[in-house]
Amino acid sequence: MSAPVARRTVDGEIIEWVVPPARAVALGLEPHPEGGWYRRTWTAGAAVATDRGERPAATLIYFLLPPGEASAWHVVASDELWLWHGPDPLLLQLGGSGPAPLAGEVIALGPREEAGERAQALVPAGVWQRTLPSDGETLVSCVVSPGFSFDDFRLGEEHNP
C-alpha cells in the first residue's frame, strides 16, 4: 500500500490526506483539487492569446476516478474534450453557465453505444461540470483548448476554503 499524499487546493492548502489507488501510482498521477487523480501528459508547443493571457494552444491530462470518487462542481474557461478509456463508464454532469451550477444533462461515457454511452464528450468553455460517483474505476483523458491553467479554473463555492 502506498503512503498517503496530500490533496491540495489550487493555492496549495491541504484539503485532505488520501492513499493513491494502484492505477494512480502506476500512471504517476496526483490528487486533483476537484477530486480524482491526474497528470498532464502533453502541452502544445504553440501558444495563443486569450483575454486571460497567453495559453498553450491545447493541453492533455490523464484523469482517474476510482470507485466511489467523484469530481466537485467546477468550471474551466476553455473547451474541454473528455475521451473515455475505461474500464468502467463515467457519468459527467453539466451545470449550465450561470454564476453557480444547476444540475442538468448527464452524459454517460463508456463502451455501450446502444445504452446511450459514448467514447467522448465536449464541455463548452464556461459550463459547470462534475462527475458522479460510480462503483467502478474509470480512466479518461481531457483535452483543453486553449490550454488549461489553474488561473482559469474555479471550484463551486462549497469547495472553496
Rank of each mutant, 00 (worst) to 15 (best):
S2G: 13
S2L: 12
A3Q: 15
A3P: 08
R7N: 06
G12I: 05
G12K: 03
V18M: 08
P21G: 12
P21M: 13
R23V: 10
G28K: 12
G28I: 12
G28H: 09
E30P: 07
P33K: 06
W37I: 01
R39P: 01
T41V: 14
T43G: 06
A46M: 15
A46W: 13
A47K: 10
V48H: 04
V48N: 05
V48I: 14
D51H: 13
D51C: 11
R52S: 08
G53W: 04
P56M: 04
A57D: 12
I61G: 02
F63S: 09
L64M: 07
P67Y: 09
P67I: 08
A70K: 07
S71F: 06
W73T: 03
V75A: 02
A77D: 11
A77M: 06
A77V: 04
S78Q: 08
D79M: 11
E80W: 06
W82Y: 11
W82A: 00
L90C: 04
L91G: 04
L92H: 01
L92S: 00
Q93N: 07
G95F: 01
G95Y: 00
G96A: 11
S97T: 13
A100I: 14
P101E: 05
A103S: 12
G104K: 04
G104C: 05
I107W: 01
I107M: 02
L109E: 03
R112Q: 15
R112V: 15
A115Y: 09
G116L: 06
G116M: 09
E117R: 13
R118P: 04
R118G: 07
Q120S: 08
Q120P: 00
A121F: 09
V123T: 01
V127D: 09
R130F: 06
T131Q: 06
T131S: 14
T131E: 03
T131R: 03
L132S: 09
L132Q: 09
E137A: 01
C142N: 12
S145Y: 09
S145V: 08
P146D: 05
P146V: 05
F148S: 01
F150E: 02
D152L: 04
D152V: 03
D152F: 03
E157V: 15
E158L: 14
E158D: 15
E158M: 13
